[in-house]
Simulated scan of single mutants.
Amino acid sequence: MAEHTLRTRAARRSGWSRAGDALLTVLAAAGALCIVLVILAFTLNISLIMFSTGSMSPAIPAGSVALVREIPATEIEVGDVVTVDRAEGLPVTHRVTEVLDADGEQVTFTMQGDANADPDPAPYTVSQVRLVLGSVPHVASVIVRFQDPVVLGSLTLAAATLVTWAFWPRRTADPETEPRAGNQADPARAGSGPAHRA
């Protein structure tokens, strides 16, 4: 009976250990991804942008997150999807439809959203753009949720608890040192040996 209990406890510990290892692996992968993104941001001018509208659907639907790289405007070509900063209003990310003029580093071009019936109202003249390298749909809402202080604090606390649990020293049960059912004294048998005369 005692051996069965020890095996059950060991199996439970093993299950929790596997779950903890899996969570630690996920956290390590997420941390590594963050480090890679930071390195890319500083070395290659790569960053993330979120799409709140569906003007680039179906290629880039609303709620997508895109990886973009800042490049000189002289490198853009017709068909590229680029983000342009505007003096007034939010940046716009649409597809280049025509390159009109180039004056040194300044390039004038037109753009249009894939889902829009008409091109953008006026051409853009800029020296730098952010070229869309790729996108992942339906991720923006998750990233926005992670920016919530309560969610971020809870995740940090959970991660700290998990790491502490993973590296906390454990006492392994040794079956040889555990009491066994057969070694326990049986009161019913006390005095049941051969009778001795005084």
Results as ranks from 00 to 15, higher is better:
V82R: 13
A66R: 03
D21P: 00
Q106N: 11
Y124F: 13
I71Y: 05
T74I: 07
A195H: 13
A10N: 13
S141Q: 15
L100D: 06
T110N: 09
R7N: 12
P121Y: 00
S192T: 11
G20L: 10
P119K: 05
G182V: 09
R189M: 12
V65T: 10
P119G: 04
A10V: 03
S14A: 06
A59M: 15
H94S: 04
M56F: 08
A62F: 09
L131T: 00
L67C: 00
R7S: 07
T164N: 09
V126S: 02
N116K: 03
V68A: 02
L40C: 06
G63F: 08
T108C: 01
C34Y: 12
I76D: 00
G15S: 11
T108F: 03
R145K: 10
F51Q: 00
L131I: 04
M50A: 15
A62V: 02
N45Y: 09
E70M: 04
A62W: 10
A62C: 05
S17F: 08
R180A: 10
R170M: 03
Y124E: 00
I35C: 11
R7I: 06
M56G: 04
P169F: 01
S55E: 03
A32R: 10
V99S: 11
V129S: 01
V99E: 10
V132S: 01
D85C: 04
A188N: 00
S55Y: 07
A41L: 01
L157E: 08
L44H: 11
T110Y: 09
A30S: 02
G134C: 01
A73K: 06
S135E: 04
P169K: 07
Q112F: 02
V129P: 00
H94N: 07
S127I: 03
P179L: 07
L23F: 14
G89T: 08
L27C: 07
G191H: 05
A159N: 02
Q147N: 15
F42V: 09
Y124S: 02
T25K: 13
T43L: 11
P61K: 15
R18K: 11
V139D: 01
I49N: 06
